[in-house]
Amino acid sequence: MLKPRKPKLLDGVKLSEVIKSELKNRIEELKEKGCTPCLAVVLVGDNPASQIYVRNKRKTCEELGIRSFAYDLPKETSEADLLKLVDELNSNQEVHGILIQSPLPKHINEEKILNAIDPNKDVDGFHPVNKGKLLNGQDCFVACTPAGIQELLVRYGYKIQGRHVVIVGRSNIVGKPLSALLVQKAEGADATVTICHSRTRNLSNITKTADILVAAMGVPEFIQGRMVRDGCVVIDVGMNRIPDNTKKSGYRLVGDVHFPSVSKRARAITPVPGGVGPMTIAMLMKNTVKSAEKFLASITK
């Protein structure tokens, strides 16, 4: 009887440290020229998960020597006041990147706020201008999670060109931009991409054809071993809390992939936590540095 394969773990923590080390050199070069990269992080309300995400982003800024402007606003903040702040940050030449932490309180139109950000400071890659440029294959700020997934695959040596990538999930944050990124006629792309979602028929028949499977639907352990072909590379974007009485916290973190069964068939797989998450933050820092470099180039022509 054949032993189950032991997959290679695509360690996002280790790779993100490599990328951050590369960024430190670029940041030092910018500082020598009188330009310190700066990211403005705006948090509205007291969502516990958002507070953790924002804290991690600010911590990474400090670690790299990127300035971080913190705006922690009460949940009662009006849409008009938030738009006013975005306008001020757009005009502030010391700020190179603007991040509005999602989700926003229900009384604020999130799309309206994101669309108000200067596309040149949209380091999250959510503005329609950057989305359109991505689709057209033009230079732009790519959404951080898709960019992080591409970096994981490329730097770990998994060929994307000509491969069938199946993305389960069609969100504006991951599924759609990732499909646009990997289908481009470019290095680290040239894939055949299929997007699946909640209305896809015979889902397992499609996921089993994937050379690279990306799970990004936000459903705990949805992708099971029977849905994956042998030798597939699996990227798990999910981060879900499920009850676990054996843990002091009362819960444990799992992805959208059932790791025990899928890992027996996968050639490589991202762990949760420690896979895609750290790469997302690294790509945010990379976009911020890129924005600072573009700003410096624009004023020194």
Rank of each mutant, 00 (worst) to 15 (best):
K131R: 14
S78R: 11
V123Q: 02
E32T: 12
D72F: 15
V254F: 01
I223V: 10
E62V: 11
K176R: 14
L178R: 04
E111F: 13
I269Q: 00
L64C: 06
V219M: 10
T280G: 12
S91H: 14
I299E: 10
L104C: 05
K208Y: 14
E110L: 06
L134C: 05
R55K: 12
K31M: 11
K247A: 06
N120G: 09
L114N: 12
P273C: 09
F69Q: 14
M279K: 00
R265I: 10
T192R: 11
K84E: 14
S263E: 07
F295S: 08
D190P: 09
A80V: 13
K131N: 14
K248Y: 11
L181H: 04
A70P: 13
C61R: 05
L89V: 09
R55C: 12
K301I: 08
I108W: 12
A292Q: 13
P273H: 05
G218T: 05
R5Y: 10
E28Q: 13
K208M: 14
E111A: 13
K290A: 04
N115M: 04
L85H: 02
D230W: 10
L9M: 14
C196L: 06
K8T: 13
L114V: 02
A147Y: 06
V123C: 06
K159G: 01
L89P: 09
M285N: 11
K294M: 13
P273Y: 02
V276E: 03
V257K: 04
A266R: 08
T194L: 09
K301A: 13
Y71M: 05
V234T: 03
L64P: 03
G225V: 06
S298F: 06
D124E: 12
I206E: 01
G148V: 01
N205A: 15
N47T: 11
E28M: 11
P146S: 00
G238W: 02
I52C: 08
I117S: 03
Q224K: 08
L253Y: 15
D118H: 05
E17S: 10
V276P: 05
G274R: 05
K106H: 12
T60G: 09
A80P: 09
A191P: 09
T60Y: 08
V233L: 05
P37N: 07
D118A: 00
E63V: 04
A189D: 04
Q224W: 00
L15A: 08
D236P: 06
D244H: 11
V165M: 08
G34P: 11
I223R: 00
F222Q: 10
N47F: 02
L39K: 00
I167A: 12
A216F: 00
T270L: 00
I299M: 09
H258G: 06
N90W: 02
P37K: 07
L83K: 07
V42Q: 04
